[in-house]
Design a protein around this nucleic acid. Structure first.
Lengths: 343, 343
DNA sequence: CGCTGGCACTCCGGGACCCCGAGTGCCAGT
DNA sequence: ACTGGCACTCGGGGTCCCGGAGTGCCAGCG
C-alpha cells in the first residue's frame, strides 16, 4: 500500500504546485520540489495511473498534468487540512468588522473582508427572516389611506412596505391595529406569524376588518417573499486576476453573479443547525449552473449559537487554494456569528 | 465655411462609424457610406486637419482614424442630438419599474433597467438624506440600556442605528423621548434637524439628559454620515462585451467600481435644482480617476418636481453611443422622479 | 516486483520571414 | 478647391522551423 500512498502524495503535490504556479506540472519538477524520494520515471507511472482514474489530465500530449474536478475533490476530501489563520489575519477580521453601525454595515464589511482575505468573489447572505423572530412592528401614517409597515427582526434586519388601505383610517384606529399586532407577533418566530394573526380580524368591528386584513396580508407577504434572501457580493475584480482561469471571457461568470437567484443556489440551502464546522465545497461542474462550470464555491452557514441563520462563501476558479479559502470562510463565518449574537 | 462644415460632418461620421464597428475608419469607407459627395482624397485632407486639431488620431501610420477624447467631446456638444426613445423602450421602462414594493426595490429595478437599456454599467444613487424631510422617528427597546433608533424619510428611505444608552431607561421614559423627538423633527428637512433638536435636553430632568443626549447624538450622526450617499450598481458584465475596449485587462475598472467613493465622484455633485435636462457627460481623462481613463460617464440628477434628490448614470467605454445612452439616462431619470413623487 | 535510466517521440510556443491589403500623404492636373 | 494617381508604410496573418519540455515505453537492476 506504500505505492498507493505515494500516488496520493503525487496528486496532492500536483494540486499544490498547479495552484501555486498555474502551469501544468511535469514529473521532473515534481520529483525535485517535493521530497518524494523517487525518480521522475516512477512519478510518471503514478501519473499515468492517476490519469487512468480520472483525477488528473494532460492538456496536450507533451505537457504536464493538471488536476480534474474529481482530482480537486479527492484533494479537498482526503488530502488537505484546513490551516488555522495567522494572527495578523485574525486581527484583520476583528478590526474590519468592529465598529459596524447597523446590519447593512455589518453585511457590507463582512463581504468585503472575505473578498480581501481570499482574493476571490465573496458572497454573504442576509440573516434569513425565516429564522428570526419579530422584535417590533410599526405602522407609520403617510396619507389617510396609506401607511408604511415596518418590521424589525431580532437580527436587526428591517423590512418596510407601503400599504394602500381600502379606505382612510384614523390615527386612533391605526394605533389599535398596531397594539393588536404588537401583542400577537412580538417575539414570535417569523414562520409562526401567520398562525399568530389567524384571529386578528376578530378583534375588530366588521367594518374595520377590510383595513386590518389588508395590513395583515402585506405583513405576511413581506415575510414570505423571496426578497427575503438577499445576498451581497464583493470582489468581482478578483475574477480578473488570472484571466486564463476563465476560458475565453468571463462575461458569463459576471452575468451569473448578477442574478440573486444564482447566488442563492450557489450558497445552497440553509441547514437547520450549525453543526457542520467545515465549509461545503462544490467544485466545477458539481454546481450545475450555466456558465459556472470552471468555478468552485466554498460556503458555510453562520448563525447565533447553534442556530443557522444564513450562509456565506466565496466563488473562485477551480484552481484555487482550497485549504486557505476554507479557513478564511470558516473564520469569517464564526466571527460574524459572534457579532450577531452580541446584538 | 462650407469646408468647415464638411470637416465637422467628417468628424461626426468617424465617430458614428467607429462606435458602430469598433474599427478605425478610413477615408474610402467614409466617402462611400456617408453621402458626403466628395472623394476620399478630399476626406483625407479633412482628416489631416482634424488630426491637427487633436480631434482624431491614427493608431498606426497606415490605419484609419479614431476619435480622441476631444473629438468625442465636440461630437457630444455640437454634433449629436439626443434621440427620443422608441415606444417599446418606453414600455419597457414602465413595466420594469411598476410593481416595486419599497425603496430598495425601486433602486434595484431602476439600476437593472438602466444597465439593460444601455448595455453598460449603470449606477443609481439613493435619494439623498440631505434633501429629504423626516417622516417619522421611532425608538424600539432591545434591552433596558439599548434601543434601536429608526428614522424614516419622506423618500421612503429607512435608516436604523443601535444606541447604547449610558444607563437603563424605562418604557415610559423612552415614550416621552419619542414624543419629544416626533414633535420637534417630523416634517423637518434633514439638514435642519440639528437646529430643531437644539433645546431637546431642556425638556427633560437633569438626570435624564445623558440618555436623551446620546440618542440625539446618534440621530444626528445618522444624518451626517457618508453612509448617506449609497450607490447601487448593475451590469458589470457589460464591461466584458468588447474586451478590446479596455486595454489589457479591465481589472482596474472593476476595482474602481467597487469603491463607493469612486462611484460618488463619478456621478458628481447633486445640484440644487433639476433644471438641467441634458445629462452631464464626462469623457475619458476628463474624469480624473485612476483606472477610468478610457471610460466615459453619462449622468443626470433625478428628483421630485424641481428638487434634485440624487443622481444616476452609466459608465462605459469612451467608444459608446452617446446619443442613445443620453436619451436612456434621461428617460430613466424622469421616470424614477415621477415614481418617487407618487409615494 | 517495483524502481530507474535511457531513448525515441510528440507537441506547443516563439521567432523569423514574407506577403497582402488597407490606408496614408503628397503632387500635379482640372 | 477638389480629384485621381502613385509611392510608401505598416500591421495582421500565414507559413515554416526549431528548441524545450514532457511523455511512454523498455530493458536492466536490486
Amino acid at each position: 500500500m506504500v505505492a498507493e500512498d505515494r500516488r496520493l502524495a503525487v496528486l496532492r503535490a500536483i494540486v499544490e504546485d498547479y495552484v501555486a504556479t498555474n502551469e501544468p506540472v511535469g514529473s521532473r519538477a515534481l520529483a525535485e520540489r517535493h521530497g518524494l524520494g523517487v525518480s521522475p520515471a516512477t512519478i510518471r507511472n503514478d501519473m499515468a495511473a492517476l490519469e487512468e482514474e480520472g483525477l488528473i489530465t494532460a492538456p496536450h500530449t507533451s505537457a504536464g498534468r493538471v488536476p480534474t474536478d474529481r482530482g480537486y475533490r479527492l484533494f479537498v476530501d482526503k488530502l488537505s487540512e484546513v490551516k488555522p489563520l495567522s494572527a495578523p489575519e485574525r486581527a484583520a477580521i476583528a478590526s474590519f468588522l468592529d465598529g459596524a453601525v447597523d446590519l447593512d454595515d455589518v453585511m457590507t464589511r463582512t463581504v468585503r473582508l472575505l473578498a480581501q482575505l481570499t482574493r476571490q468573489v465573496a458572497l454573504v447572505q442576509y440573516p434569513s427572516l425565516a429564522r428570526s423572530t419579530v422584535r417590533h412592528v410599526e405602522l407609520v401614517t403617510l396619507t389617510p389611506s396609506r401607511v408604511l409597515l415596518v418590521l424589525i427582526a431580532d437580527t436587526g434586519r428591517v423590512e418596510q412596505r407601503v400599504v394602500e388601505l381600502p379606505r382612510a383610517a384614523g390615527d386612533a384606529f391605526l394605533a389599535r391595529i398596531r397594539d393588536q399586532l404588537g401583542v400577537r407577533v412580538t417575539g414570535v418566530a417569523l414562520p409562526d406569524v401567520a398562525a399568530a394573526l389567524e384571529d386578528l380580524t376578530a378583534a375588530f368591528d366588521p367594518d374595520e376588518r377590510a383595513v386590518v386584513a389588508t395590513i395583515a396580508a402585506t405583513l405576511l407577504e413581506t415575510l414570505v417573499e423571496r426578497h427575503d434572501e438577499r445576498v451581497v457580493l464583493a470582489g468581482a475584480a478578483n475574477l480578473a486576476a488570472v484571466p486564463a482561469d476563465f476560458a475565453g471571457s468571463f462575461r458569463p461568470v459576471l452575468e451569473a453573479l448578477e442574478e440573486q437567484m444564482v447566488l442563492l443556489r450557489l450558497l445552497g440551502e440553509v441547514s437547520a443547525d450549525l453543526d457542520a464546522d467545515l465549509p461545503t465545497v462544490r467544485i466545477g461542474r458539481e454546481n450545475e449552473l450555466e456558465g459556472l462550470g470552471s468555478t468552485s464555491v466554498v460556503s458555510l452557514a453562520y448563525g447565533r449559537g447553534s442556530r443557522a441563520m444564513a450562509r456565506l462563501g466565496v466563488v473562485g476558479p477551480t484552481r484555487m487554494d482550497y485549504p486557505g479559502t476554507m479557513s478564511s470562510v470558516r473564520a469569517v463565518a464564526r466571527y460574524l456569528g459572534r457579532m450577531l449574537a452580541d446584538q
